[in-house]
């Protein structure tokens, strides 16, 4: 089974990279761009067929390593 994990900064946490991307887009002629937040996308192959079990394991992975819950949120998506 394949899992997709998105890690994003929590609201209110300054995101200098997102800010820089926003500025650059504005400069490049995309004035409609307002706030930009940059995150991470992680793809994992899992040797697990039970979705509920996989989800629980992924939660654990996110809390232990993939996300820093002081500043980051995460979301988990299971495919296949």
């Amino acid at each position: 089974m394949k899992a997709r994990v998105h890690v994003t900064l929590k609201n209110g946490v300054l995101d200098p990279q997102g800010k820089a991307i926003g500025h650059s887009l504005n400069r490049l002629g995309f004035p409609e761009v307002g706030d930009v937040r940059q995150g991470k996308y992680i793809e994992l192959e899992l040797a697990e067929t039970d979705k509920a079990k996989a989800k629980a394991r992924l939660e654990d992975m996110c809390k232990k390593l993939l996300a820093n819950t002081v500043i980051e949120n995460y979301s988990i998506e299971l495919v296949g």
Binding site: L14, P16, Q17, V70
Partner: peptide, 17 residues
């Protein structure tokens, strides 16, 4: 040590990147 939870807070990317 912050990631390990021994100290509060976290270290983010420098504001000037």
């Amino acid at each position: 040590v912050t990631e390990a939870g021994l100290l509060p807070g976290t270290l983010m990317r420098n504001s000037h990147l």
